[in-house]
Design a protein around this nucleic acid. Structure first.
Lengths: 159, 159
DNA sequence: ATGTCTTTTGTAATACTATTACAGAAATTC
DNA sequence: GAATTTCTGTAATAGTATTACAAAAGACAT
């Protein structure tokens, strides 16, 4: 199941993501610093997309009030590492919980509980590539954002 | 070919789009007014996505300097009619040249010439719906934006 | 270690995008 | 044609993102 449940083992899930981003950073020859870690840990604290000014407000609880530009810089690095994705349709950012650094996420957004998840469907990928080619289009980037109800929210009114 | 060429018969193409939006409006029991027509005709004047404040600036040449909120209101109507799409990744809006009022466009953006086109691939659509279901996700809206090189821009440096 | 060069960080200001509030105009209804 | 509702125009403001620049930190040769 790609969507987190309200009571999943979140600490383990966040720990794993943190280890992944550290590994990816050192592999890429970059060193993560305080600001990166604060931003990433705020994004990890729930499975929702968070706006920059929200991150700024929450950063205070981490002992350091970050300014917008500092957050944008941290997000840029984290996105390059494939550990954070921007949700265009929400002007917000979400931590990636996938095991591989994904640069072509297919994002699912629940309109009821706001939880965000990702798919990585090869069928979707192939269909997009094939359809692009049929239109003579050479695709280099993609942004897929689907809205709807996640498994926790279908059936019951709220999660 | 979905992408317009630099020298296609643009007047005919724009005329057709204008007729379509008028037809859709009357079918929906809405009446288009000056502001709607100005905004739509600005979007039609090229096959690119245009930002709201750009539209505001260009509106002056149409004899009426529109304020942002007026443009947002016009765009809302035009989007409801399926004749304009928002390009989330560009904070901009594009006229729809498709014959059917499409609410689930698959948008193609050329990173070289900035032209925007749409696909409506059933394969992509099916793949998305199937993959969503496999994840227990009930999709209600979708936003697909692909970037890359359009047929006019592959091969030659610019169009 | 010291000085130079480069890169990163913090602060402030500003630009760009979108919405709210409200009064006046136009259309609708009775 | 008066009352009601809806739409329009103006202004102000909220929300998102970037630029500019000086200070600090890191890299590297001497």
């Amino acid at each position: 199941m790609t969507f987190s449940t309200p009571h999943h083992g979140h600490d383990a899930c966040a720990d794993a993501a943190e280890k992944r981003v550290e590994a990816r950073a050192s592999e890429a020859g970059k060193r993560l610093k305080d600001n990166h870690r604060i931003v990433f840990s705020i994004l990890l604290s729930d499975h929702r997309a968070v706006g920059v000014y929200d991150i700024a407000a929450r950063s205070e609880a981490h002992g350091k009030r970050l300014q917008p530009v500092q957050i944008y810089r941290a997000l840029e690095t984290l996105m390059e590492l494939g550990s954070v994705h921007r949700v265009e349709s929400a002007n917000a950012y979400v931590a990636c919980h996938s095991n591989h650094a994904c640069r072509r996420p297919q994002i699912l957004i629940c309109t009821a509980c706001e939880r965000v998840s990702e798919m990585d469907s090869p069928k979707v990928q192939n269909a997009l590539e094939q359809a692009s080619l049929e239109n003579g289009f050479v695709m280099t980037q993609q942004n897929i954002e689907l809205r709807g109800l996640c498994p926790n929210c279908t059936g019951q009114p709220n999660a």
